[in-house]
Design a protein around this nucleic acid. Sequence first.
DNA 1: GGTCGAAACGGACCGCGGTCCGCTTCCATT
DNA 2: AATGGAAGCGGACCGCGGTCCGTTTCGACC
Lengths: 196, 196
Amino acid sequence: MPKDLPLLTAAPVERRDAARNRRALLDAAAELMGGCGVEALTMDALAARAGVGKGTVFRRFGSREGLMASLLDHREAEWQAGVISGPPPLGPGAPALERLHAFGASRLRLHLDQAALIEAAGRTWGENHAVLGFAELHVRLLLGELGVAGDVAYLATAIIAPLAVPVLRQQMHAGMSEQQILSGWRDFVDRLVGSE
Amino acid sequence: MPKDLPLLTAAPVERRDAARNRRALLDAAAELMGGCGVEALTMDALAARAGVGKGTVFRRFGSREGLMASLLDHREAEWQAGVISGPPPLGPGAPALERLHAFGASRLRLHLDQAALIEAAGRTWGENHAVLGFAELHVRLLLGELGVAGDVAYLATAIIAPLAVPVLRQQMHAGMSEQQILSGWRDFVDRLVGSE
DNA sequence: GGTCGAAACGGACCGCGGTCCGCTTCCATT
DNA sequence: AATGGAAGCGGACCGCGGTCCGTTTCGACC
């Protein structure tokens, strides 16, 4: 009998060399990005730095955008964990409106921090249901707790939309500070949920 | 004395061959795009089709994204004309709230029609102050007419944000129809301005 | 019409993202 | 330990966006 019953949920096991190369690639990516911006992260350079062939890089990540998405996944997972089980007010335990405010603040911060990476990831990032979908679901639930009536799904989308990177870049370009953006967003949300 | 006094507002005059090539390039672009999608619009193919060199294309438009932006400019100008001096309810003459609704409907339609082009234009499109800036200003003025208090500039941005192409694509992907999106947006806006 | 400077042209050239396919490495089984 | 086959690997190759610079064309002025 086999040692490991192949569970239905088990991901297809990764071969040793594959795992090693994955590690090497992510490390090399971090190094290259640390030196300069995302521009420095060339697929050829990455392959060379990690000591693997170019084909391996594309086998792993599918595309440059996919690689960027992988780099973003770590932070995103941390953030989601913070929402699900972290300390309030972002995590559970605070009143819904406070949690909503904390959501906006942390999401804004995340997007500003990772702006370059997010743009480099392009549609690979946003189209991942696990990303935008999670945030939208969270906001929907909070709106429900707040007793908001109407098309809650659309409202959730509309609440998240102005936190998108292109919008933020435009606002920063127009001279707004992170504080101004955040307070604008908070007023906007309050106005939306406060009209009961 | 010169026939044409060079007015201060006059753009630096375009040479004959330059104008001819510009025409040829825009026509060729339309032809190539008509056949297939935006993907078919290769800079090499465009140059060949228009019977000019590749360098000429880049001299004109700066980049592929710039070319896309140029293609969008025509429609955008028409739309802006419709807002400034077209028939109500989009143009002047209708109550502010109706104009706002009409704004959303026509803008939604425009974005859906031109989605592929807009995405291909990338940041060249959004960063043009004449585009997003105009729409935002318009919404700001309408909000002012409606007597909305608070950070009107931010609210204008937030009202426009969910009409961005990536958001729309996500919604269409989730099975929403144009009608559903529009009515969701209208409720959202009503809730925002109706809480006086 | 002739002349001259500037603007426009064109296509060879480069770097990068992405593909392809023959070769190597791993690991389950005997 | 031997072995079979599949998963993984690597780097030559391609197409496209973008640049560069010697050459051509325009048109203003004499």
